[in-house]
Design a protein around this nucleic acid. Structure first.
Length: 871
RNA sequence: GCGGGCGUGAUGGAAUGGUAGACAUACGGGACUUAAAAUCCCGAGGCGAAAGCCGUGCGGGUUCGAGUCCCGCCGCCCGUACCA
C-alpha cells in the first residue's frame, strides 16, 4: 500500500472551516466547567504577522487547547492594539488615512492569524480604534476624573522647533529631531495625568501575592516603584549670593547618616532656585538651556557627561553653622524625583564621587568598612556604598549607618529653622504619575471641553463618544486636531457658551490597560458588565514579551484598581499568571554592504565550515550575527511563506520545539524542514498502523510484552507532556513526544503481524499520541484522529488519563560516585531502604577497590538519586 | 548611567545542589535505489591506543558533590516613563 504524503495545504483550511462552522471555540459564559482565561498580548496591526506573533499565539493556543481538554470553560479572545504613531507616519509618507491603513492591516493580519489554526473566539474581536471601544474608554476617563484619579499639570515634552511639533523619545536621535534634524528643546505643556501614585503602596505590596509571575518581573516593578525611606532636610542658604526671596533649599536623602561627608549641594536645571538665579546669570541660563536640549528621556539624561555649574550660592550645614557648602546646578539631578535637589557625599556615592573629582571637591569618608584602619582609609576612584561604622562624623561616630539615620532624623526633627523643624521623615516613591496626553490625531480623544468662563469641563456622558473627525490632513507636521477648521468648536456643557474641545488624545497604553476586561463583554453598553467581568477575570495565563515587564503591566494593574474604585469591576489584579516569552531571531547575511534576506540565501557546508551564497547571483556572501528579526537587516522570515510551504502545524511545532519559551528562538531553515519531516513521519506512522489497529478491543493481558512497553511509553509521555505544558515547558513537551514516537516506531512497523493484545495496546497508544499532539498541531491531530476511525473533533476530547502504575519501575539504577566522581552504577529495587543501598554500595567492586579494606570516611546516600562514597 | 535577565558539544537545548549533553538540527558511516531525494539503522563533547584526564563565558569561594548557591569580572539582550 502506498501512503500519500500529508498535504497541509489541503487539510488545514478544511478543518479550520469545520471548526468555524461548529463554533468550536466560541465561549459561553454559562457553559459548564471552571473558567480559564488565556490571553496573549494583542498585536499592533503593522500589516503582517511576524514570527514573534506566531510564537506568542501558538503558546497561548497550546494552553487554551490543553485547558479545554482538561475540562475548563476556556475564554481565548483576540483583538487589535490599533491606535498609535505608525498609522500617522504612514499617513504622512503615503497619504493614506490612518483609519484606512489600520483597518486594511487588520484585515490582512486577521487572515494570516486564521491560517494558523488558533482556537480563538473571534466573535469577541475588536480594535481599540473602533468608536465602540474608545467611546467606553472615554466613559472610564470621565469616571476617573470624577474620582479624582485624572488631573492636569505641567510637564515637559520634546519640542522640535523647526517642525513645530512634539516628538516621541524614539523620534529624538542624538538630541535632534528625526525629520528636521533640529536640536530638540524641552517645553512645558499642561497635560493630563492619571494618579497612579495613589496606588503606589498597593501596587508594591500586591507584587508579593503574584506567585505565578516571573520573579524578575516582580523585581523590576518593585525597583520601578522605588519605595525609599528618607529625610527631607532643609538647608539655610548663606547670606551673600543667595537670591532674593529664597532662603533655604530642601533636599531629599536616603542617607542622612552620611551628612558629615557632604561636600556640595546640587539642584536640577528646572529647580526654582536655578530658575531664579538664571534670571540674573546669563551663563547659568545658557547652562540650563544646554541641559534642556538633551531631550526628556532618562537614558539620555543619565548617560550624558555629568556636568555642573557652580552658582556661587552656599548652603549652611545643619550640624555646623560655620560649614558652608557650594550649591551647583547639575544635569544629572532630576526635577521629577524627590525635591529636585540633593546633597552630594562623594565618598559613598559613585556619581557624587565622579562629580567631586571633576570639580575638585572634598572627598571625606564617613563610613568605615569592616577591617579597615580609620587612620589610613581613603577613597580613590571607587565610592564605598556598603555597611560599616560611622567615623569623622561628630556625634555619629561609632554608630552603624542605620543607627546614624535614626540619630540624624530624631535630632533634626527637633531642631528649628525659621520656626519649623529642619527635617521631616518622608517615604518617597520613584514612581511618577502617568502622563496620558499626546498631541496626536490617531488616539482616543480626551473628552473634556475648555470654556473661558467655566474652565476645564467634562463632556456630558450623553454626548459621548467624542469622535475623531475623518476629514484631516497630514500635509503639515503637528496635531491635525489642533488645526481642524471646525472640530474643536463646541459649546460648554455647563454654561452653553462657545467653547473648545481638548485636542490631546490618550497614550495608547491606556487602550491596552483594560482590553482584557472588555473582552469579557465586548459589545456591552457600559465599559464592562461587572458581574461578567468578575466571573471571567483575572486572566489566568497572560503571555507576551518581556519588553512589557514594567509599563504595560503596571498600567493595567493601575487600571483594575481605578476601575474597582469607579465600580466597573471588583478585582485585585488583572493577570494571575504571567509568562514572558523570548524573541524570534535569525542569522543575518550581507553581500558587501547590502543586507540579504534569508529567502535569497543558500547555505551549505564546505570543509566543515558553513558557507552562504546568494541564490539570485550565485555569489558567496558573509554570514553575520544572529539578531532580532528586523526590516532594516532583512533577516525576516514571513510566516505566510512558511505556512504556505509547510503548513501551520510545522510552523507551530518549530517555534515550540527548539528553545525554552522564555528565551530567544533562532529561526533556521533546517529546523523548519526538520519540523516538517516530523509532521510527515507522524502522519506515516499513524496512517500505516491505522488499518491494523482498527476495531481492536481492550488489552487482555496487561503484563504481556511488547504491549506493556508500548503502554508504559505512552503513559510516561502523557505524564511528561502534561507536566511540561502545565509549566509552559513546551520544548520539553516536544521532546517527550519525540521519545514516544521513537518508542512506537519499532513495534508499529511490525504491527500487522502482532497479536490482538499488542494491537490493542498500540491502538490505545496511538489514541493517546494524537491527543497529546492536538494542542500543538491541531490540524494534523484532527486528520490522524479521523484516520483512527473517529468521526468527532479531537479538540473536543478530554486529556488522556495517566495510569500511575505504568510510571513506576521495579528497580532503579543509581550513579555510584567515589569522592564525587562517577565510578559505576548501582541497580537496586525501587523501594530499597537507605541501609540496603549502603550495603549494596559497599559490596560493589569499584568501592571495595577504592577502600582497599579500609572504612569509608563518609557515605552519602540519596535514595532515588545518588550514592557517594568518600574515602 | 541605572534596574532586570542570559551565557552548556558544530548548532538549538536537557539536567528538584546528585550520572553534564535528554530530545532535536547539522554532520559522518551503512541499508534501500540505476542514481538522487525521501525513509530506515548506526556513530559522535575534547584529548588519548587504552587506562584515564579535561570540560557548562572568565577568576575565586561554599559543599561529600556546583551548569545550578555566594563574591568579583567579561560579553550579549530587555527596560529606562511619548515605539508598541
Amino acid at each position: 500500500m502506498t501512503i500519500e504524503r500529508y498535504n497541509p495545504r489541503a487539510v488545514e483550511p478544511r478543518w479550520q472551516t469545520a471548526w468555524d462552522e461548529a463554533g468550536l471555540y466560541e465561549t459561553k459564559t454559562d457553559a459548564p466547567g471552571e473558567k480559564y482565561y488565556v490571553l496573549e498580548m494583542f498585536p499592533y496591526p503593522s500589516g503582517r504577522i511576524h514570527m514573534g506573533h506566531v510564537r506568542n499565539y501558538t503558546m497561548g493556543d497550546v494552553v487554551a487547547r490543553y485547558k479545554r481538554a482538561q475540562g475548563f470553560n476556556v475564554i481565548h479572545p483576540m483583538g487589535w492594539d490599533a491606535f498609535g504613531m505608525p498609522a500617522e507616519n504612514a499617513a504622512m509618507q503615503n497619504k493614506v488615512h490612518p483609519a484606512k491603513w489600520t483597518y486594511e492591516n487588520i484585515a490582512s493580519m486577521r487572515t494570516q492569524l486564521k491560517s494558523m489554526g488558533l482556537s480563538l473566539d473571534w466573535s469577541r474581536e475588536f480594535a481599540t480604534c473602533d468608536v465602540e471601544y474608545y467611546h467606553r474608554q472615554q466613559m472610564l476617563f470621565l469616571d476617573f476624573l470624577d474620582a479624582g484619579l485624572a488631573y492636569r499639570k505641567k510637564s515637559k515634552v520634546n519640542w522640535d522647533p523647526v517642525d513645530m511639533t512634539v516628538l516621541a523619545n524614539e523620534q529624538v536621535e542624538d538630541g535632534r529631531g528625526w525629520r528636521s534634524g533640529a536640536l530638540v528643546e524641552q517645553r512645558e505643556l499642561t497635560q493630563w495625568f492619571f494618579k497612579i501614585t495613589d496606588f503606589a503602596e498597593d501596587l508594591l505590596q500586591a507584587l508579593d501575592h503574584l506567585p505565578n509571575w516571573p520573579e524578575k518581573v516582580r523585581l523590576m516593578q518593585k525597583n520601578w516603584i522605588g519605595k525609599s525611606e528618607g529625610l527631607m532636610v532643609r538647608w539655610s542658604l548663606a547670606e551673600g549670593g543667595k537670591p532674593e526671596g529664597i532662603d533655604e533649599l530642601t533636599v531629599f536623602t536616603t542617607r542622612p547618616d552620611t551628612l558629615f561627608g557632604a561636600s556640595f549641594l546640587a539642584v536640577a536645571a528646572d529647580h526654582p532656585l536655578a530658575l531664579k538665579l538664571a534670571e540674573s546669570d546669563p551663563k547659568l541660563a545658557e547652562f540650563a538651556a544646554e541641559c534642556r536640549r538633551s531631550g526628556t528621556s532618562a537614558e539620555a539624561l543619565e548617560t550624558a557627561e555629568k556636568k555642573g555649574y557652580q552658582t556661587g550660592v552656599e548652603a549652611v550645614h545643619p550640624f555646623d553653622p560655620n560649614w558652608k557648602l557650594p550649591v551647583y546646578v547639575a544635569n544629572f539631578v532630576l526635577m521629577d524625583y524627590g525635591t529636585g535637589a540633593i546633597f552630594g557625599c562623594p565618598a559613598h556615592d559613585q556619581r557624587d564621587l565622579d562629580f567631586a573629582r571633576k570639580y575638585v571637591l572634598p572627598v571625606k569618608p564617613v563610613v568605615l568598612p569592616p577591617k579597615e584602619d580609620p587612620t589610613v582609609f581613603s577613597i580613590y576612584s571607587e565610592a564605598y556604598d556598603g555597611d560599616g561604622v560611622l567615623f569623622n562624623s561628630g556625634f555619629l561616630d561609632g554608630k552603624t549607618p542605620d543607627e546614624g539615620f535614626e540619630a540624624v532624623a530624631s535630632r533634626l526633627e527637633n531642631a528649628d529653622l525659621a520656626g519649623k523643624p529642619i527635617a521631616e521623615r518622608r517615604i518617597n516613591f520613584r514612581l511618577r504619575d502617568w502622563g496620558i496626553s499626546r498631541q496626536r490625531y490617531w488616539g482616543c480623544p480626551i473628552p473634556v471641553i475648555h470654556c473661558e468662563a467655566c474652565g476645564v469641563v467634562p463632556e456630558k456622558r450623553e454626548n459621548l463618544p467624542v469622535e475623531l473627525p475623518e476629514d484631516i490632513d497630514f500635509e503639515k507636521p503637528g496635531n491635525p486636531l489642533d488645526r481642524h477648521p471646525t472640530w474643536r468648536k463646541t459649546s460648554c456643557p455647563q454654561c452653553g457658551a462657545e467653547a473648545l474641545r481638548e485636542t490631546d488624545t490618550m497614550d495608547t497604553f491606556v487602550d491596552s490597560s483594560w482590553y482584557f476586561a472588555r473582552f469579557t463583554a465586548p459589545r456591552a453598553e457600559n465599559p464592562t458588565v461587572p458581574d461578567t467581568a468578575n466571573q471571567w477575570l483575572p486572566v489566568d495565563q497572560y503571555i507576551g514579551g518581556i519588553e512589557h515587564a514594567i509599563l504595560h503591566l503596571l498600567y493595567s494593574r493601575f487600571f483594575v484598581r481605578a476601575m474597582k474604585t469607579t465600580g466597573h469591576l471588583d478585582l485585585g489584579e488583572p493577570f494571575k499568571g504571567l509568562f514572558t516569552q523570548g524573541m524570534v531571531v535569525h542569522e543575518t547575511y550581507k553581500d558587501g554592504r547590502e543586507w540579504v534576506p534569508p529567502a535569497d540565501v543558500n547555505i551549505f557546508e564546505e570543509n566543515g565550515k558553513r558557507v552562504a551564497t546568494r541564490i539570485s547571483t550565485g555569489a558567496e556572501i558573509a554570514i553575520g550575527g544572529i539578531e532580532k528579526m528586523s526590516k532594516s537587516k532583512k533577516n525576516v522570515v514571513d510566516p505566510e511563506d512558511i505556512i504556505g510551504r509547510f503548513g501551520a502545524d510545522t510552523a507551530r511545532w518549530f517555534v515550540l520545539s527548539d528553545s525554552p519559551p522564555d528565551r530567544d528562538v533562532i529561526w533556521t531553515e533546517a529546523g523548519a524542514e526538520g519540523a516538517f519531516r516530523f509532521v510527515q513521519r507522524l502522519w506515516r506512522l499513524v496512517s500505516e498502523a491505522a488499518p491494523h489497529v482498527a476495531g481492536t478491543g481492550a488489552v487482555s493481558d496487561p503484563e504481556a510484552q511488547p504491549g506493556l512497553d508500548i503502554r508504559k511509553a505512552a503513559h510516561r509521555a502523557a505524564h511528561g507532556v502534561q507536566t511540561d505544558i502545565e509549566r509552559l515547558g513546551f520544548n520539553k513537551a516536544v521532546a517527550r513526544i519525540h521519545e514516544l514516537v521513537n518508542a512506537l516506531a519499532g513495534p508499529l512497523s511490525e504491527i500487522g503481524k502482532a497479536d490482538a493484545n499488542t494491537k490493542a495496546a498500540a491502538a490505545a497508544a496511538l489514541d493517546m499520541l494524537v491527543r497529546l499532539i492536538a494542542p500543538m498541531m491541531p490540524h494534523l491531530a484532527q486528520e490522524c484522529w479521523t484516520l483512527l476511525g473517529h468521526e468527532d473533533f479531537v479538540s473536543a476530547q478530554s486529556w488522556p488519563a495517566v495510569d500511575a502504575g505504568l510510571l513506576r519501575d521495579d528497580s532503579v539504577t543509581l550513579p555510584l560516585q567515589i569522592n564525587g566522581k562517577k565510578r559505576g552504577d548501582l541497580t537496586v529495587l525501587a523501594e530499597a531502604s537507605k541501609a540496603e543501598i549502603e550495603q549494596a554500595a559497599l559490596a560493589a567492586e569499584v568501592v571495595r577497590q577504592a577502600l582497599n579494606g579500609g572504612e569509608p570516611k563518609r557515605l552519602v546516600v540519596v535514595p532515588g538519586r545518588i550514592v557517594n562514597v568518600v574515602v
